[in-house]
């Protein structure tokens, strides 16, 4: 009897886990299914009359505005990622590698944006852009805002990586005649790189998926999430589902590829 009980409790966690994963995928499945919906006016309900269609997949830019919004999102994401990764990585290096006055205030300043709700970030940025800096809302205000909230996540990610590095490796390099510049280029940077790449990917996905802050500071600029949100009342074109699901596929394939390459690199015994 204790055997059956232990079987159940051993597998209980796994059973719940699988159920949770199904739950996590349910909306993705819906998004996927509705990308084949042969709907007339609104893609909210399944049209039982039309048979499933591939036409949205064949013509993903078919709905007006969807592809321009996607392009804007990619441009914003790329720019924000580039700048935030550089700025955040520099901060992370300073925090991990140096002892200086003001270090704990820096830590607080980096932590605060993560502890601030997005509406507050959006509202304050909108206020400063309009009342303070008198900037026109649009592409650049969105980029500025995205860089701001990505920096903290970059700092945290890169910092964790740097902290897990053995400082003795750098000492060994300088012991082996590498000057500080070479030590950084040959040892520190290559070893920190996985953390920096992870930070960049994180930044991109945060920026790409952001809606709340973007909605505050974008003016007439339309990003992909904003496009979806705005067209919700009028009916979202199935092309949005096609694009949304493709992003998911691309991301999953990238992660899997990275995993495979990573485990190859690390070698057998590592």
């Amino acid at each position: 009897m204790s055997r059956t009980r232990s079987w159940v409790s051993d597998h209980l966690a796994m059973i719940i886990a699988v159920a949770v994963l199904v739950y996590l995928f349910l909306p993705v499945l819906y998004t996927f299914v509705f990308s084949f919906n042969n709907y007339r006016r609104s893609n909210i309900t399944w049209n039982p009359e039309g048979s499933p269609t591939l036409k949205h997949w064949a013509n993903p830019c078919g709905a007006p505005g969807v592809c321009p919004a996607l392009v804007e999102s990619i441009k914003i994401g790329a720019l924000a990622t580039l700048v935030a990764t550089i700025l955040g990585t520099l901060i992370a290096f300073a925090l991990v590698r140096y002892v200086f006055r003001g270090r704990s205030s820096t830590n607080v300043l980096v932590f605060l944006p993560m502890a601030t709700p997005e509406v507050v970030l959006g509202a304050s940025l909108l206020t400063i852009f309009i009342q303070g800096f008198r900037m026109d809302l649009g592409f650049w205000t969105v980029v500025i805002a995205h860089i701001m909230f990505c920096i903290s996540f970059v700092v945290v990610t890169v910092k964790a990586r740097l902290q897990s590095l053995d400082p003795r490796l750098e000492e060994a390099a300088s012991d082996l005649y590498a000057n500080p510049r070479t030590t950084f280029l040959r040892i520190t940077f290559p070893l920190a790189l996985p953390g920096i790449v992870a930070a960049a990917l994180l930044s991109f996905s945060l920026s790409f998926d952001d809606f709340i802050i973007t909605n505050f500071v974008s003016g007439n600029e339309t990003t992909f999430p904003k496009f979806v949100y705005v067209s919700y009342t009028r009916g979202i074109p199935a092309q949005a589902n096609v694009i949304g699901f493709s992003m998911f596929l691309i991301a999953v394939l990238c992660v899997i590829a990275a995993q495979i390459i990573g485990s190859r690199r690390r070698g057998v015994a590592a």
């Binding site: 349910l26 909210i44 996905s205 998926d209 919700y232 979202i236 998911f248 991301a251 992660v255």
Partner: peptide
């Protein structure tokens, strides 16, 4: 382990607005 980790993160690459709308459909 790693597969599950990927599965946990993966849904979040579909736009969160899209997924929320999907919930609206699921709960309709």
């Amino acid at each position: 382990r790693n597969v599950m980790l990927i599965l946990v993160v993966a849904p979040f690459f579909t736009s969160f607005i899209l997924r929320t709308i999907a919930w609206r459909q699921i709960l309709a």
